[in-house]
Simulated assay, not measured.
Amino acid sequence: MRQRRTDLALEAKELWEESARQTARLEGVAAFTETREGFLTETVEILDERGEKALGKPAGRYVTLTMDGLARREEGAFPRAARAVGGELARLMDGVPDRGLALVVGLGNRAITPDAIGPKVHEHTLVTRHLVEQIPEHFGAFRPVASLSAGVLGATGMESGELAQAVCRRLKPACVVAVDALASRSLKRLCRTVQLSDTGIAPGSGVGNHRWALDRASLGVPVLAVGVPTVVDASTLAADLLGQEELPPLGEGRDLLVTPKDIDSQVDDLAKVIGYGISLALQPGLDVADLDLLLS
């Protein structure tokens, strides 16, 4: 039986709980809920091999921010969302040197809107490496940040992971922040949630085209991942809507992905939130108003 498809650790935990016997206990996993800047924050920590096997994800910390207020365009939602992303990312970066170069890698295909989160994020990320080196009298207090829009294999002839690895060898960053689109099991989480983790990322997750992973093992430095679910697998969605445990046979439609009709505006909004959030985490002395000025 094919499993419901999701890239969110929170949903993997929910699926395990739905399929497990009532007396079963999820071993090797810890979970807790908080709020940050008024947004629901749900954390899943995979502690050991038991948790990895149960949820099908590598050990580490996964934080899911739910941003319904942003989708409704509530007053003040954008700066709160950016600060929430920045705060959780800064927490995940605990132990990473706070002065070394940070490399932001946007993964995905700009030509495919649901997969364009990564390429668009770098447009809203404050890059400072060149400024720190060339104008130290004004930018010497900033952390050096470089940003890379890696493209896709079909357009560049290079795996995103190969390109990121080559850049890491040249620049020797203290950490990498990788951004990509993800897949959810639920319509209610599409473009409503942001997942952050300290485990790295596999490019192409959101469009079902898993490639070379970007993680500490492949790049040699800590890799923080930021992802937004922009698609739902059609068979997974059908099973949820029908209330079935098994995925229905969809024939030729088994490879379909479903995405919101206003995906273009939602991707633009979330790319800006994530870009600002990353910049706030890397430059803790700045606020949203400062970024508005510096990125305008």
Rank of each mutant, 00 (worst) to 15 (best):
L15V: 10
G87Y: 05
P249G: 11
K53F: 13
L153C: 13
R36D: 08
R110M: 08
L26V: 13
K272Y: 01
R189M: 08
P249F: 15
E75D: 15
M93P: 12
A82W: 07
V127K: 09
F142W: 06
S279D: 02
L214T: 11
G86P: 11
A30T: 14
R254T: 15
S149V: 15
A30S: 15
E75H: 02
L256N: 05
K57Q: 08
D68I: 10
V232N: 02
S235T: 12
S184N: 02
R254E: 14
P248G: 07
Q3S: 11
L241D: 03
E52W: 14
A178G: 11
M67H: 06
G151Q: 08
A116G: 05
D115K: 05
L270E: 06
A271Y: 03
R99D: 13
V132A: 11
L250N: 02
P222D: 00
G38Y: 12
R99K: 14
G28S: 10
A281P: 12
L291D: 02
L70K: 05
T33G: 09
T193Q: 04
R211S: 15
A217C: 09
L55W: 09
L247K: 00
H124L: 08
G28M: 11
L224A: 05
V176D: 03
A116Q: 04
G251H: 06
D269R: 11
L131P: 04
G275A: 10
G285T: 05
A281I: 10
I278V: 14
R5G: 00
T128M: 10
D233M: 06
A82K: 01
C168A: 13
E88G: 06
V105L: 06
G204W: 04
R73C: 14
A9N: 00
E34G: 14
S184H: 04
I46W: 13
A150N: 01
L70M: 13
L196E: 00
K57P: 02
A166L: 09
L103C: 07
A281R: 05
A59F: 15
F142D: 01
Q244T: 15
P249V: 00
A77H: 01
A54M: 10
D48K: 06
D48Q: 10
G60S: 14
L163A: 14
P119Q: 04
P144V: 09
E49K: 15
L282G: 02
K57V: 08
A59N: 00
L293P: 01
P97L: 01
A239L: 07
A77N: 03
V63I: 15
Y62V: 02
L70C: 11
I112L: 15
Q3I: 13
L47T: 12
A271P: 07
V231N: 04
E42T: 13
G95C: 13
A30I: 12
V152E: 01
H138E: 08
S205T: 13
T230L: 12
S296W: 08
L187E: 02
A146E: 12
D68L: 14
A81T: 09
C168P: 03
T128V: 09
G69R: 04
P173M: 04
E34A: 15
A213C: 09
A59M: 12
V258P: 05
V121F: 12
A213E: 06
A81N: 08
A59G: 06
G157W: 05
